[in-house]
């Protein structure tokens, strides 16, 4: 479990090629129901196994927008309390399952990772660009994307 409030990182401390702290998620059917309530997306393929299978899926799947929001949390934690998330972009290249019943959520582990690709200053703003991705338990990437954050300066 990571600290509730992440430590502040500063623009000067970042180098291109740095890997940012990972974030691990263990989506369960309960979390998908939370997300349905939180986002307003009540599409049945995310909580009704029979409905999902009737549309040709193997089982219920994690909402794409929830994976986007996971990547948003990865960037939020990286940017820290004084930073700002400027852009979160991702593609949903594959479907991701959620743990159900007595299944261990650990088996459906979904890890969010990011690597700094560019840093520059624009006016007063210290901008950091990243490649970000959502990775399945077997190591395959289902959700590649990019992000932009603004970091505070030590100066």
């Amino acid at each position: 479990m990571s600290d509730a409030v992440p430590d502040q990182i500063y623009f000067e401390d970042i180098e291109v090629g740095d890997n940012i702290p990972e974030l691990e998620k263990n989506p369960t059917s309960q979390q998908l129901v939370y997300w349905a309530a939180g986002s307003g997306d009540f599409y049945q393929i995310h909580y009704d196994t029979q409905y999902a299978q009737d549309t040709g899926l193997d089982d219920i799947i994690v909402h794409g927008a929830l994976k986007h929001a996971f990547l948003g949390e990865l960037l939020w934690r990286f940017a820290g309390p004084e930073g700002q998330v400027k852009r979160v972009q991702c593609s949903y290249r594959g479907m991701d399952p959620a743990a159900q019943g007595r299944e261990s959520a650990q088996e459906k582990k979904f890890t969010l990772r990011g690597t700094v690709t560019r840093k520059y200053t624009e006016g007063e703003r210290n901008i950091v660009e990243l490649n970000i991705e959502g990775v399945r338990a077997d190591g395959s990437v289902s959700t590649p994307g990019t992000g932009v954050v603004i970091l505070p300066s030590r100066g």
Binding site: T55, G56, H63, G64, A65, H68, G72, Q84, V85, K86, R87, V88, Q89, C90, S91, Y92, G145, V148, I150
Partner: peptide
């Protein structure tokens, strides 16, 4: 009839 989400890109103005 069937719809999947292919991607999301949100840019904030600050």
């Amino acid at each position: 009839p069937l719809v999947l989400n292919g991607g999301t890109d949100i840019e904030y103005t600050g």
